[in-house]
Amino acid sequence: MHNSQRTQKIAFLFLFLATLLIVVPVGLIVVIIIQKGLPAINWQFLTDIPRQGMRAGGIFPAIVGTMYLVAGAIVFALPIGLLAAIYLSEYSKDNFLNRLIKLAIVNLAGVPSVVYGLFGLALFVIFLKFGASILSGSLTLGIMILPIIITASREALESVPDSFREVSLSLGASKWQTIRHIVLPNAVPGILTGTILGLGRAAGETAPILFTVAAFYLPRLPHSIFDQAMALPYHLYVISTQVPNVDEKIRYGTALVLLVLVLFMNLVAIIIRYKFRKKKKW
């Protein structure tokens, strides 16, 4: 017995070490980026266009570009994803089609991001002749985040108790009225969480926008959705690997802005979920 207690101690120590091996580097990464990036952040950095071949000036067009892309992606993916989730949770029966849809969603979630880039290039840029544009990039990102939105929304819808649906139907409400007035309002926090997570993912991805929208160096704001745009993650890639002699401060600053943007969205999602769990009435 004494011996097995000691084995347990050692085993738990190793498990703890494994956890530290993940947590500490993550903490370090965040701390390093904040520490070295913060000095670069000022009003001019955030609101100016890049100058001197991206070796000076700010990152405003990249921020704006990312905003456009994220907004476009969500405008496309939220309605489709939400309706797909409604289909899965409220309408579909446990049959072959249902399984096929679930399998398709799993696969959409697993397709490598660079393959989304290829797909966007082939379908939107070339086949549909949208060219390398915000439209093409948004649609590509939109399809990429679809599984995130569908999965989160579906979970949220399914967590609404069936008894609510029965009550509503028993009062003579139609199926759609029941979904619209009872199921959806009670699933909003979960749907919101999924949407924000999708936003965060779309903001941070680089590979899908490489060939569909991203401009290497475009020191102005895009004019329309058919225009190319700079984007934060691609800009970070460019100044880190493609442009020599960029001040380290600018690189860290760009990384910091991107990191803060993405982590902020995730934190908001986590907080919404946490609050909702505490408040849940049933």
Binding site: F164, E166, V167, S170, L171, G172, I182, W282
Partner: peptide, 16 residues
């Protein structure tokens, strides 16, 4: 039909 034939369930089920 359900408007004409109402139902009260086993447990109190108020909507939220």
């Amino acid at each position: 039909l359900r408007k004409r034939v109402g139902m009260v369930f086993a447990l109190p089920l108020p909507l939220p």
